[in-house]
Amino acid sequence: MARPPRRSAPSTSSGIPWDEVTPAPVVLVTGTEALLAERAVDRVLAQARAADPAVEVTRVSAAGYEGGRLRAVVSPSLFDEPRVVVVEELHAGTDAALADVVDYVAEPAEDVVLVLVHGGGVRGKKALDAIRAAGALVVACDPIKREADKSAFATAELRRAGRRADASGLRALLEACGADLRELAAACQQLAADTSGVITEQTVARYYGGRVEATGFKVADAAASGRAGEAVALLRHALATGSDPVPVVAALAAKLRLLAKVAAARGRGLDPARDLGLAPWQVDRARRELVGWTPESLAAAITAVARADAEVKGAGKDPVFAVERAVLRVAEAARG
Rank of each mutant, 00 (worst) to 15 (best):
R206H: 08
K313V: 01
L137A: 13
G64A: 09
A279N: 02
D275G: 02
A186C: 08
H91K: 04
A233F: 11
A264L: 12
L234Y: 10
A308G: 07
G336V: 07
S168K: 12
L256F: 08
P82R: 07
E157N: 11
E311Q: 15
L235N: 09
V312H: 09
V112D: 12
A161H: 13
R71G: 15
A228C: 11
A231P: 08
S77Y: 04
L128H: 03
R160N: 00
E66Y: 06
G135D: 04
W293H: 10
L252A: 08
V312E: 07
E213H: 00
E175L: 13
V246N: 02
G267N: 01
G197E: 10
E33P: 09
L90Y: 02
V219F: 04
D142A: 11
D111K: 08
L78F: 13
V212H: 09
R123C: 04
A161G: 02
W18V: 04
A264N: 02
T22I: 15
A265D: 12
P10T: 09
A301S: 11
G336R: 14
S196T: 14
L78T: 07
E324M: 11
P295C: 06
V41R: 08
E89Y: 06
A233W: 13
S13E: 15
A133G: 14
A134Q: 09
R159N: 06
E20R: 14
T215F: 01
V117P: 06
A48Y: 03
R287I: 07
E56T: 06
A205H: 09
R146S: 03
A136R: 03
L174K: 07
D284L: 05
S297A: 13
R288I: 02
A179G: 08
A315I: 02
T195K: 06
E230Y: 00
L290V: 07
A220H: 09
S75M: 03
L181A: 02
P108S: 05
P295Y: 11
L28A: 05
V246T: 13
